[in-house]
């Protein structure tokens, strides 16, 4: 090969450095997309996640001109011998009205386990308008073998809920959680 022209070599080096910068930027961008995605979803409620903290009751009059059907679906993920149930399969509520629903957790396995119920709302536009005043989903549940526990959910649909939404489905899926080492015994 001919000896490279030093000018050309310098230009090549410059091009390589530029592409490496873009490369590093895109790798960082891929990871930056994770928090960006979360923020985007929190602002828009697009992935059906509800707030992870208890919200305060918005007082004011109940919009009794509208009735929305709230449906509850519960399920346990594979590998976790628990049952999550509710007696209230669905309830009809007015926007603005606060309602309490009871869920029961049962550990059918032979070991102490920790699990958390993770909520998801369909249609996702409703996620922003579902306010939870109290929910078992804010913390992990720890059950001994055979133990059964009742837990309440207090929620309110705010009045800004879009008019075209007549039914809101709230799904709770139980996921196993790592047990904290200190709490053993």
């Amino acid at each position: 090969m001919a000896t490279p022209n030093p000018d050309t070599q310098r230009n090549v080096n410059r091009t390589v450095i530029k592409t490496l910068v873009v490369l590093a930027g895109m790798f960082a961008f891929a990871f930056a997309l994770v928090p960006l995605y979360d923020v985007f979803c929190q602002v828009t409620g697009l992935n059906g996640k509800t707030s992870a903290k208890a919200q305060s009751l918005v007082s004011g009059d109940v919009d009794s001109s509208r009735t929305v059907t709230m449906q509850f679906i519960t399920r346990s993920s594979a590998g976790l011998p628990w049952r999550l149930e509710t007696q209230t399969r669905q309830v009809r509520v007015h926007p603005g009205q606060s309602t309490e629903v009871h869920f029961s957790f049962t550990n059918l396995g032979k070991e102490v386990d920790v699990a958390r119920a993770v909520p998801s709302v369909t249609p996702s536009e409703a996620a922003l308008h579902l306010r939870k005043l109290a929910c078992f989903c804010f913390q992990n549940q720890r059950l001994r073998p055979g133990e059964k526990m009742e837990a309440p959910l207090v929620f309110q649909l705010d009045k800004q809920l879009p008019e075209d939404i007549r039914t809101v489905t709230l799904v709770y899926t139980l996921y196993p959680q790592e047990m904290e080492v200190s709490s053993s015994g």
């Binding site: 873009v22 895109m26 790798f27 891929a30 990871f31 997309l33």
Partner: peptide, 9 residues
């Protein structure tokens, strides 16, 4: 250059 780093991520 633009998307292979995303796959790597």
């Amino acid at each position: 250059i633009a998307v292979m780093p995303v796959l790597a991520g």
